[in-house]
Design a protein around this nucleic acid. Structure first.
Length: 274
DNA sequence: TTCTTAACCTGGAGGC
DNA sequence: TGCCTCCAGGTTAAGA
């Protein structure tokens, strides 16, 4: 399940691999996976890819024709740069871009929650998907003071709060659990009860967990693959996510597994008491 | 304004 | 072995 680190890894790889390529043709196998917003397929064919960047969990692929392919991988999506022969081995391919280098860019998505939207670049940041996104957690704008201020008056559990993309963009279930464990904060705690010290501690933990995961190439559980179709290696470093009913690696106590906001949440009742 | 819940979707695991 | 049910989860929309 791609979150900020996984999307960042994919972006860095694709920026290296596909920038400078011309899109020579597009094959759509599932119509809803590629949608045009005031653009057409003919606008995209022949365009040269000029840059690849990330905003929250979105991948932005810019072209020289004032168009941007906005990609969200949701649960099971993957963007893979590969050669013609290897492309035949991939299943659940929803969109296939032929590139001028002779290689292909595949968008595969098992559960089809994700998709690609083609926008005019000059209208991109007014689109509903990007305009509502909150602060980027790896920037200097994301501070303890920011988090403390934003959580005032909020009664939802802090776990649910940091998953809200309008507050902080890019955090998903894996890194929410891991950040709360690292900061020693109980995920069920009402966001508005977070003190200044705890807010600062949580911000530091979020930055640390996300940065470490990027260094490890992201986390792969089931479907996530990077831009080369490879698995991420961060899953072996996880302390709580996916470890429900196992012992805490720090104190040895059994981890608790509960539902918060409809999401499976794992935490240590002894280490996370703040 | 804030919060909750359902819906979208399919593969895999587990039970029978 | 085959069938059925449940679970996983990011985002949005509707309703409270």
């Amino acid at each position: 399940m791609p979150e900020l680190p996984e999307v960042e890894v994919v972006c860095r790889q694709l920026a290296y691999q596909i920038v400078g390529n011309r899109i020579t043709s597009i094959h759509v196998y599932l119509e809803k996976s590629l949608q045009y917003r005031e653009t057409t397929e003919q606008d995209v064919i022949g365009a040269v890819i000029t840059a690849v960047e990330r905003r929250g969990k979105y991948i932005l692929i810019h072209t020289d024709r004032n168009q941007t392919l906005l990609v969200h991988l949701r649960m099971t999506g993957a963007l893979i740069d590969t050669d013609q022969d290897a492309a035949k081995n991939y299943t659940h391919v929803r969109v296939r871009f032929e590139l001028s280098s002779g290689r292909v860019l595949l968008y595969k998505d098992v559960r089809t929650f994700g998709g690609i939207w083609v926008y005019r670049t000059d209208q991109l940041f007014g689109c509903p998907m990007l305009s509502k996104l909150g602060v980027e957690p790896l920037t200097e704008a994301f501070t303890g003071a920011y988090l403390y201020k934003k959580t005032r008056g909020r009664r939802v559990p802090i776990k649910q709060f940091i998953l809200n993309q309008e507050m902080i963009s890019g955090i998903g279930n894996i890194y929410a659990d891991e950040s709360l464990f690292l900061s020693g904060i109980r995920p069920t705690r009402p966001a508005g009860q977070l003190g200044k010290i705890s807010a600062t501690r949580l911000v530091a933990a979020i930055k640390r967990v996300l940065s470490d995961s990027i260094q490890h190439g992201g986390t792969s559980f089931r479907d996530y693959r990077d831009g080369n179709g490879e698995r991420g290696k961060h899953s072996t470093y996880l302390k709580v996510y996916g470890r429900g009913n196992e012992k805490c690696t720090v104190c040895g106590r059994m981890l608790n597994k509960v539902k918060i906001g409809g999401r499976t949440t794992v935490f240590c009742p002894r280490c996370q008491r703040r």
